[in-house]
């Protein structure tokens, strides 16, 4: 009997990516075989995006976020790896962008991609507070998705200076109509119109995560990979918590989907 082959997860890193290790670890814990690959290896053809089932762009400060968060990497990917990325997404494989990864995929137009890919339709702008902030936030899930299946409420850290979801009224209207909003910042009781600091950045409609219409590309500002064991929870010394952190559910969802649909 041969061991079950695991779905392959590609964790793309670039200069300034810094959540790659924990993202790869979360995939491993969820049952995937994760590989961290530098974007230069993809561009030089040493590695192929298509060899993987799941693609993740993790958090960090790619190229220092010097021209706005994720800008330089978004530009690089959209120019140098456009075809591969398009093929990957069209094949129905899973792509997730977390924090800086979300900023990258939204700015290169992989999300929400209402009118086709590689056209920016929404953005993640400077936090209303004008500062980078690190805090834990509650989110309420809505509109079931591959990534958030089984989640009603989730508590995760945000660590960013540019996470305010902003789009035109038209785009926001479409996101609602097509049920592409998946996670919204909420208070402890689940009120999803709660103000700062519950909505840590001033996002429109408290939007924390969205998908594309096909549901296989997902972006979120909070960090699920930061909460895979109870010890990561800020109050594990005062609350009774299960050993596994809530964030791992999102990785399990991806791996289970890949196992059943992509292999």
């Amino acid at each position: 009997m041969t061991a079950k082959t695991k779905p392959k997860a590609l964790v793309i890193r670039a200069a300034g990516t810094n959540c790659n290790n924990e993202t790869a670890l979360a995939f491993e814990l969820a049952g995937a075989a994760a590989e961290q690959v530098h974007v230069n290896e993809l561009i030089h053809g040493r590695k192929e995006i298509n060899d993987y089932h799941i693609l993740a762009i993790p958090g960090g400060f790619s190229y220092g976020d010097d021209l706005g968060s994720g800008k330089v990497l978004a530009n690089q990917l959209a120019i140098k790896l456009k075809q591969q990325l398009e093929n990957f997404v069209l094949a129905g494989k899973l792509a997730i962008g977390i924090c800086n990864g979300f900023q990258v995929i939204i700015k290169m137009g992989l999300l929400p991609a209402l009118k086709g890919t590689f056209m920016q339709e929404a953005t993640l702008a400077n936090n209303d507070s004008g500062k980078f902030e690190d805090r834990w936030v509650w989110m309420k899930a809505e509109n079931d998705s591959i990534f958030t299946r089984g989640i009603k409420r989730i508590y995760l850290p945000v660590n960013h200076g540019e996470g305010k979801f902003v789009a035109s009224n038209e785009v926001i209207g479409q996101l609602r109509k097509q049920k592409l909003i998946k996670l919204r910042y909420a208070d402890e009781s689940g009120m999803d119109n709660a103000a700062y600091p519950y909505n840590p950045n001033g996002s429109q409609l408290n939007i924390a995560a969205i998908t594309n219409r096909e549901g296989n590309v997902f972006g979120m500002m909070p960090h699920p990979e930061k909460f895979v064991t109870k010890y990561a929870h800020p109050r594990w010394t005062r609350e009774n918590l299960p050993d596994e952190g809530d964030g791992l559910r999102i990785f399990r969802n991806m791996v289970e989907y890949a196992e059943s649909k992509l292999m």
């Binding site: 924990e22 500062k131 690190d134 805090r135 909460f227």
Partner: peptide
């Protein structure tokens, strides 16, 4: 304190 990322690497337990 909040302006510093204290979560990156996902190992900060206190």
């Amino acid at each position: 304190i909040r302006q510093y990322d204290h979560e990156v690497q996902a190992n900060t337990i206190i």
